[in-house]
């Protein structure tokens, strides 16, 4: 297997020693089929045991190893060294989040926002378990399926210029999750979510830069979800003006 020595330039921040982050470089002998995470693991195992970062599945599904690679948010377990340009690889913690230490960011805000959109099935009347499953056609499933695929890696928050400027913005992943449930044929909770989703911090803070969809490693396309909610919310508004009902906004 052919090897290539790659220079990793990693942003370090150790709160007990450092006042501000700084770059540390490591020379890593990489196999041709390595991803960036493999190179970072090499550093941890062989060069510097003090480097901290999150990771687990190494198959792009747990969402923990997202970081900035050469300036863009990405999963380090799905970014192949061979696909990066020659020269040093710049690795930083996810942008737009406070740095806890090294490549570990503080996720509190993200977690709080996920919870705020009520991301669970809401029914006006629960169907008893004894009555069995809800029926849902493949077409009804497909209507929202794409929006179930978010792995909560937070790459979208890192790319979103609005979240960078307005930290109160609920942001792409959480809004997409609201849309996922709104679009589910089994759900009846859209009105309840609308209070959060269509608030000042919700969909109307989105300027449709589309960066979230550009960087999403699972092709969830959060930008589309947010625009669809804007349209639905606008339609509601006009319907109410015309006295034709429509959900609240």
């Amino acid at each position: 297997m052919t090897q290539r020595t790659v220079e990793l330039s990693i942003l370090r921040y150790r709160p007990e020693e450092d006042d501000k982050p700084w770059f540390q470089t490591y020379q890593v002998p990489c196999d041709e089929d390595w991803v960036v995470l493999d190179a970072i693991n090499y550093v941890k195992d062989h060069l510097d045991g003090s480097l901290s970062y999150r990771w687990s599945c190494h198959m792009a599904v747990c969402g923990s190893c997202s970081m900035m690679i050469n300036g863009d948010p990405a999963l380090s377990c799905k970014t192949f060294i061979r696909d990066l340009p020659e020269g040093p690889v710049r690795i930083e913690p996810l942008a737009n989040f406070p740095i806890e230490r090294d490549l570990v960011v503080v996720m509190d805000d993200f977690m709080e926002k996920l919870q705020r959109v009520k991301p669970y099935l809401i029914r006006s009347t629960e169907k008893p378990l004894e009555e069995g499953q809800h029926l849902q056609s493949p077409a009804e499933l497909k209507k929202f399926k794409q929006y179930t695929l978010c792995i909560n890696c937070a790459c979208c928050y890192s790319a979103c210029p609005q979240y960078a400027l307005i930290p109160e913005f609920i942001g792409p992943a959480a809004l997409t999750l609201a849309h996922r449930y709104n679009q589910d044929s089994r759900d009846q909770g859209r009105d309840e979510r609308e209070d959060v989703v269509a608030s000042n911090e919700g969909i109307w803070d989105c300027s449709f830069a589309g960066a979230c969809s550009d960087v999403c490693p699972k092709h969830v396309d959060p930008a589309s979800a947010v625009q669809q909610m804007k349209i639905a919310s606008t339609v509601d508004w006009f319907m109410r003006r015309l006295g034709l009902g429509g959900g609240k906004s």
């Binding site: 669970y120 099935l121 169907k127 499953q133 089994r186």
Partner: peptide, 22 residues
Amino acid sequence: PVELTQLEHWGCPWSREKNGHV
């Protein structure tokens, strides 16, 4: 089957047959 149906009630996007059954 009870537990899997419970997950269905909680919104798990199980793949479906044409007739809407899991």
